[in-house]
């Protein structure tokens, strides 16, 4: 594998709400071997759940489609890894990304969305970058630095 990439996975699944649990469990399993804290693991699970939920209900308007989760684990320093996760959809896209990312902003008021999805992602991950174009889709790129120590040492 190229450079300092330790591991990578790509998961493609149908945009149905059952798969929200699937995506976050796969993400958790992907980093479970790293000896990280339970809190860090839950942070990643929550962020993935938010991004996938967004893709399903906003990107595809709950009418189905394909969501792709790309996760890459890189060795940063000896005792730290960088996890990056991309959640991609080819749905309707976001008109105003900056506005969408504001806390409490929601277009899903009738479905009782709290408008806290992006805020949760930003709170639980170190970096969140959203690239979107109308009718082309959205990519949510998230990074988190995970402190690890080698079990062999």
């Amino acid at each position: 594998m190229e450079g300092n990439v330790i591991n990578k996975i790509k998961l493609e699944f149908e945009a149905v709400s059952e798969n929200e649990a699937l995506a976050r469990v796969v993400a958790a399993a992907f980093i479970a071997g790293l000896n990280i804290t339970v809190d860090e693991l839950e942070d990643v699970k929550t962020a993935v759940s938010e991004a996938v939920t967004n893709a399903i209900i906003h990107g595809y308007k709950e009418c189905g489609g394909t969501v792709i989760m790309d996760a890459v684990l890189k060795r940063e320093r000896k005792e730290a890894c960088l996890l990056s996760i991309d959640i991609c959809d080819t749905g309707v896209g976001i008109e105003d990304v900056e506005r969408a990312m504001q806390p409490m902003f929601t277009t899903g008021l009738e479905n009782e969305r709290s408008g806290m999805g992006f805020s949760f992602m930003e709170a639980f991950m170190d970096k969140v970058i959203v690239t979107s174009s109308l009718n082309m889709g959205t990519v949510v790129h998230m990074e988190k630095c995970l402190k690890v120590y080698d079990k062999r040492q």
């Binding site: 839950e42 699970k45 938010e50 939920t53 709290s114």
Partner: peptide, 13 residues
């Protein structure tokens, strides 16, 4: 054991 922002939506509603 797990809750995301959808839980907040339920409570607020």
């Amino acid at each position: 054991t797990f809750m995301d922002s959808s839980g907040l939506g339920i409570i607020i509603g």
